[in-house]
């Protein structure tokens, strides 16, 4: 169970309401470059948090998989570059998600038998493989990527009329969040947490651990794929740089800043990251060193709270609760601090 679930649900509702009204009081730039980006970037981070927090699978392939959806979309709809098949944009969405999920299942089947650092290395290899695949198969993309990718009419023109895409990203984010929260309370999701904690016992209890992990990885790929589709609508383009090692690290940093043990952390981290990434470039004396700034913030957060920003929030609540006499809950995937 997610600790403090009820309190946070209330908070989440207030928060979503506030977001939904934000087009009324924030600038178009803020809406598009900060909030909309936060929403879609949060989804891929949430997919990583889902896998790591509930399945103990820290996947460095999420960016690669999000790229699969994006590149497939870019290739099958009208665009400048790629296959230029010019199918209906919705067909592109479905195909993108299906291919991303299938690739995720295949990767998952390969990686599901390894754990810890080996899993990390394997998924990193997948990510790099995808990066070079899109870069070097110039028929499908090349390093220059695919430009002017057509989005469905409902997306409108994200650059000049950002409201539509913002609401789409908001609704999809809420749906993804709700889906993950739902899934982790189904037999599939509870069993995934069982596998996270004790795969050996799960085998003895009759579960097919490798299959379970594979399917969870496929679900993670599907969620990442959603983010990839939205990112293409937002950017109107995609290139291998969008799924390179830099972006992979960004997503990992986002997840850790936000809080690797809570799904909400994906969006919180994405917001902090996007805001810093955007606004620190306006600070003159920082010059081109804003990446260092993000690194420092990352370090401070990791040192202060392994649970990220949400972890800090939880510690604060825990403090308050302990004062009032009740015990504090630990996060679902927090490293087990067994007393000796």
């Amino acid at each position: 169970m997610i600790a403090g679930a009820r309190g946070r649900s209330g908070l989440a509702i207030v928060f979503i309401g506030l977001l939904a009204a934000s087009p009324l009081f924030v600038s178009d730039f803020f809406l598009s470059a900060i909030l909309t980006k936060t929403l879609w970037l949060g989804i891929v981070a949430a997919s990583l948090i889902f896998l790591s927090g509930y399945g103990n699978m820290i996947s460095l392939a999420q960016t690669g998989l999000y790229g699969v959806a994006g590149f497939v979309l870019g290739n099958v709809v009208a665009a400048d570059g790629g296959l230029k098949v010019a199918w209906d944009p919705w067909v592109g969405v479905i195909l993108g998600l299906v291919v991303a999920t299938v690739v995720g299942l295949v990767f998952g089947a390969v990686a599901s038998r390894s754990e810890g650092i080996y899993f990390l290395m394997l998924t990193l290899a997948f990510g790099i493989l995808l990066f070079y695949f899109w870069g070097q198969v110039t028929q499908l993309s090349g390093f220059g990527g695919i430009n002017s990718i057509q989005a469905p009419g409902i997306v409108s023109k994200p650059r000049t009329d950002p409201d539509n895409l913002f609401y789409i990203c908001l609704v999809v984010s809420v749906a993804v969040y709700a889906l993950i929260r739902y899934i982790v309370r189904t037999p599939f999701g509870i069993a995934l947490q069982g596998i996270r904690d004790e795969p050996t016992r799960m085998r003895a209890l009759g579960y097919n651990v490798a299959l379970h992990r594979t399917l969870a990885f496929g679900l993670g790929a599907f969620l990442a794929g959603i983010s990839g589709i939205l990112s293409v609508w937002w950017n109107t383009r995609i290139d291998p740089g969008s799924v390179g090692l830099g972006r992979t690290i960004d997503v990992l940093v986002i997840a850790i800043i936000g809080g690797i043990f809570w799904i909400e952390g994906g969006w919180l981290g994405a917001f902090v990251f996007t805001a810093i990434d955007t606004y620190s470039r306006n600070i003159d004396w920082l010059g081109p060193r804003f990446n260092t700034l993000i690194g420092v913030i990352f370090l401070v957060i990791v040192l202060v709270s392994p649970g990220g920003l949400i972890g800090i929030w939880e510690s604060a609540r825990g403090l308050a609760r302990r004062r009032s006499g009740a015990g504090a809950g630990l996060p679902p995937g927090a490293p087990a601090e067994r007393s000796g």
Partner: peptide, 8 residues
């Protein structure tokens, strides 16, 4: 013990 420490 091999219990699921993160679950109830």
């Amino acid at each position: 013990s091999r219990l699921f420490l993160g679950l109830s």
